[in-house]
């Protein structure tokens, strides 16, 4: 066991699964890099180096660079998954779903149902999401609520390096299509990650801390901010439970309801825009299933209903912060 970055954890998961199962292949734009060019081979390993080093081990037969053609290669990954391979396709930024979404939500997601249970589509789409990279409106979104909406897809949001490795291995071994969201601002964050392969089951939330006053349910990178806020609140004797649902589909509603009932006060933290996101989804769940357990209205801390801005001054205002989470918890406690 050693400390490994989110990037290393993902790379290790891919390598171990490719070693374990020859049907696992990678494809995407520049996943190796330098295809057909005269310079260095494996030049990029993805734009942020996440898949670097895999092509030299497994060859271009298994680490396939694609042209910039998301519709075709995401669809090809779906088709290959339905015909015997276990592809891991990289959709560089989730914002690019606009040019290939049909292949995901109308094709891969629905094969099994439309074909009466006779299709198996073990497809993984890895994709970068999230703000904080000064990447502006078309490279910073958190579009996981859109995927969560689609029956047939599973959606994973690893909140640290340990989670990233285990959830990605689960995604690759899973026989359903999985959209695996990697927060681009977390690639250098480190955690203890076992060297051995391990799979974290989907639909099993991780309670990162247990408290008595407020339950904070946070998604993806927001889990870390929630823990940070909980640390600060603990100094003022406000103790928080922090729940990392790990996957938005399936969603561990049991743990959400149980931890909400324990404190009676809930803050949901979601970096996505506030309408029809995971925060509203969880809030609706609580209102419908746990209204009687709530001592106060559910509070949501989310990004605003605006595109992600470029200017650092604006983007910093855009992203939910530990301070905003902390303030929401304090308001809840003060108000009840």
């Amino acid at each position: 066991m050693a400390r490994k970055s989110y990037r290393q954890a993902i790379n290790e998961a891919l390598r171990q699964e490719m070693e374990r199962d020859s049907r696992v292949i990678l494809m995407g734009e520049d996943v190796a890099g330098g295809m057909g060019a005269e310079g260095e081979d494996d030049a990029w390993g993805g734009p942020l180096g996440v898949t670097k080093g895999l092509m030299p081990i497994f060859g271009r037969e298994r680490v396939l660079d694609t042209p910039i053609t998301e519709s075709a290669f995401i669809g090809a990954a779906a088709g290959a998954a339905a015909t015997g391979l276990r592809p891991v396709a990289e959709l560089m930024f989730v914002d690019f779903m606009g040019v290939c979404f049909d292949q995901i939500f109308n094709q891969a997601a629905k094969f099994r149902y439309m074909f009466g249970g006779k299709a198996v589509t073990p497809l993984v789409i890895r994709t970068m999401y999230g703000a904080g990279f000064r990447a502006a409106s078309q490279h910073s979104q958190c579009l996981y609520p859109l995927f969560t909406h689609i029956p047939g897809l599973k959606v994973a949001l690893p909140s640290n390096a340990y989670e990233a490795k285990g959830l990605l291995i689960q995604a690759i071994r899973d026989d359903d299509p999985v959209i695996f969201f990697e927060h681009k601002a977390m690639y250098d964050e480190e955690a203890e990650v076992p060297d051995e392969a391990y799979a974290i089951p989907f639909g099993e939330a991780n309670v990162t801390r247990e408290g008595e006053d407020v339950t904070i349910i946070a998604f993806g990178r927001m889990v870390n901010l929630a823990n940070e806020a909980a640390d600060r609140l603990a100094k003022d004797k406000i103790s928080c439970t922090v729940v990392d649902p790990r996957t938005t589909s399936p969603l561990d509603t049991e743990t959400i309801l149980e931890t909400a009932a324990e404190t009676g006060r809930v803050v949901v933290v979601d970096e996505a825009h506030p309408r029809c996101n995971m925060a509203t989804d969880v809030a609706a769940l609580l209102v419908q299933e746990a209204f009687g357990d709530l001592k106060a209205p559910v509070r949501m801390v989310t990004g605003p209903h605006a595109p992600v801005p470029f200017s650092p001054a604006l983007e910093d205002l855009y992203i939910p912060s530990a301070a905003r989470i902390e303030a929401a918890v304090r308001e809840l406690v003060a108000g009840s």
């Binding site: 051995e196 391990y198 799979a199 309670v207 990162t208 801390r209």
Partner: peptide, 17 residues
């Protein structure tokens, strides 16, 4: 028994084999 202790045991149990 803390939540993290439970998670630690789960981490062990998740390892292949």
């Amino acid at each position: 028994v803390t939540a993290e202790m439970v998670e630690d045991v789960l981490r062990f149990k998740r390892l292949d084999g």
